[in-house]
């Protein structure tokens, strides 16, 4: 059990590092580098914890992005920077790269390898399940991270003005 927690925390640390790498790539201000790491780390924790208690990948990703969307609002207030500066690098590690890769592999095999109908059926199955997974995870990320901003949009603007 302890080993499982360690594994979870280590993965979350790497999620934080990935968030930070993308932050540097997007040239975020120096002041927010640590914040981006922390947000990426906790987003990872939220996602992996929900995954470990048998939540669906799409749901856990949505909850983790929602978490990032909500927690970046107070951070943004504190240092007077737009929310996107923290939130987008922090959610980048959740991009469904592996599912996208499997989708492409399936398409490649479907097009270039000769096989019988049963093989084709299996491949179609894998292309569609992985492809829709990619689509829904992307959707979960974007909705989750921008919902708090959209809902609080007007209030935020008024508060920043004061």
């Amino acid at each position: 059990m302890e080993l499982l927690y360690l594994d979870l925390i280590e993965k979350a640390v790497w999620a934080g590092i990935a968030a930070l790498g993308f932050g540097i790539l997007f040239n975020i201000p120096k002041k927010v580098i640590l914040t981006v790491f922390i947000l990426g780390f906790f987003a990872g924790i939220v996602k992996f914890v929900f995954l470990s208690i048998d939540f669906n990948v799409v749901t856990s990703t949505f909850l983790a992005s929602l978490f990032v969307g909500i927690t970046s609002i107070p951070f943004a207030h504190k240092v007077n920077k737009p929310i996107v500066v923290f939130s987008i690098p922090a959610i980048i590690p959740m991009i469904p790269g592996y599912y996208a890769y499997k989708t492409i592999l399936g398409i490649r095999k479907f097009t270039f390898v000769k096989m019988d109908d049963k093989g084709h059926e299996q491949l179609l199955n894998s292309i569609f399940s992985n492809g829709f997974m990619v689509l829904f995870i992307l959707f979960a990320i974007t909705v989750g991270v921008s919902a708090p901003m959209l809902l609080l949009g007007k209030d935020m603007a008024r508060k920043l003005k004061d």
Partner: peptide, 12 residues
């Protein structure tokens, strides 16, 4: 940092 992010993805 971007390469470290790539390594991090592999771990995730």
């Amino acid at each position: 940092t971007v390469s470290l992010a790539g390594a991090g993805f592999a771990r995730i």
